[in-house]
């Protein structure tokens, strides 16, 4: 009986382990736990893929100290909702860096996903995606930021991103003269 019981317990734990195998628990810097399917995590994030393969996943929640709960929620949201439609991050060879691979325009749902974010949340998400090595999420968020810069004068960009102008007047003039055509109408 004891053996059976033990067997049963072992089976139970195995079942739990099998159930666990589908998801990964991630822990944000402020201690909140999020679950994400293991397959999606491995596909979308090179870092998580490496951790899963290396067995350094903690069942009680893998500590991601660099990522706040809000950003992690967005990451998990992105993974869970759209895992299936995204090609594996692992398939994108790391040797092809972002500036040689052709850029694929974000799809409609991806646009919506980043459009609803606040300014801060967007940057938190960029940093989180960068930390986790999520190429596609980086593409989407960076695309969003570039959209915010496109066609604007430097003054307007500074205003949007709160960039402090630390040029002297002469330096600024020099830069503008150097490539005057780009500053044609501002």
């Amino acid at each position: 009986m004891e053996v059976d019981k033990g067997k049963g317990e072992a089976e139970e734990t195995r079942k739990v382990a099998e159930a666990d195998r589908d998801t990964v628990t991630l822990k944000s810097s402020d201690g909140k736990l999020f679950e994400v399917s293991k397959e999606a995590a491995a596909r979308l994030s090179t870092v998580l893929a490496g951790m899963i393969a290396g067995g350094s996943i903690d069942d009680n929640g893998t500590d991601l100290k660099q990522i706040g709960s809000e950003a992690l929620e967005n990451v998990v949201d992105y993974c869970n909702k759209h895992a299936n439609s995204i090609p594996s991050a692992a398939l994108i060879s790391s040797s092809i860096s972002f500036n040689t691979a052709p850029f694929k325009e974000p799809e409609e749902w991806e646009r919506k996903f980043v459009d609803r974010l606040s300014h801060d949340a967007l940057f938190d998400l960029v940093e989180a995606a960068n930390f986790l090595g999520m190429e596609r999420l980086l593409d989407v968020t960076c695309h969003k930021i570039s959209e915010m810069m496109k066609g604007k004068s430097p003054d307007q960009i500074r205003e949007v991103f709160n960039i402090k102008n630390d040029y002297t007047k002469e330096e600024l003039e020099e830069i503008r003269q150097e490539l005057a055509w780009a500053f044609y109408d501002d």
């Binding site: 960029v126 810069m149 430097p154 960009i157 960039i163």
Partner: peptide
């Protein structure tokens, strides 16, 4: 990351970022 954002901009907008601040 900033370079990645710049790659998504057309050349003209990219050049303009040079006037933002010394970090750019």
């Amino acid at each position: 990351l900033r370079l990645r954002i710049l790659t998504l901009l057309p050349l003209r907008s990219a050049i303009r970022t040079g006037a933002l601040s010394t970090r750019w």
